[in-house]
Amino acid sequence: MLESFADFFQQFAQENPRWNFIFFYEEKQAGKIWTGLKYTVWLSIACVIFSVIIGVIGAWLQGSNQRIARAVVQGYIQLFRNTPPFVQLLFFYFALGAFTPTYSPDGWLEVPIISNVGWAIISLSFFAGAFNVEIFRAGIEAVPHSTQEASESLGMSRLQTYRYVVLPLALRVSLPALNNNLVNLVKTTTQAFAIAVPELLYQCVTIWNDYPSAQYPAMLLMFVVYIGMVGILVFGMSRWERALRIPGYGK
């Protein structure tokens, strides 16, 4: 079965010189795709998680009564929302990367403590996180102030009120917008290619540099993989949305 699958694409490549699905019949190329896929999935999951955490904390700080905290969050949002994420990534990696300490595992090599994968995660999480802060803030504003007052008058601290009352209600309002932003984030992980993170786009480019005949098939593969990943994300989010639905509340 597998044999015939590989044979089919080998045959296909001979008949259609521009459609060389080399990664389907050559083990080495297939290995590259697998590695790329692993990095892409890992990058996406890490960035989704961190950007949501940043959003939750940022929105909390925005409601703080400390002016400095609010100003810092506002500055952060303006900076990351209004500049190209691609430039952010390059800046993080090259400019900030130059200052990060290094360590030496073998006494020869100097390895920075934050790898290019680390920088990609940091940079993309902060980029998407800036939008998430705004998304959560809009959700928080939709929670009636009187509900928070009720919570406070029961003796709950501001943090408890946020964690158990405001956030769960805000989340329900924020979910559609959050969904969109996370879809964008997953697609934006391809930019990590620019700082040589061996994710899927990076692997595909190395393949088609060696085998120009594999360029279109590799692009096609990228489309399929991203449609699949975004599909899973959207499916998960809508399941979550349904799980959060409250009888008798909202629509």
């Binding site: 009720a150 029961l154 003796g155 158990y164 009352v165 769960p168 329900r172 959060l244």
Partner: peptide, 16 residues
Amino acid sequence: RKKVGMVFQQYNLFPH
């Protein structure tokens, strides 16, 4: 607030 309870005109229950 442990000593003083309050009930509001609009109930203000936690809807979730």
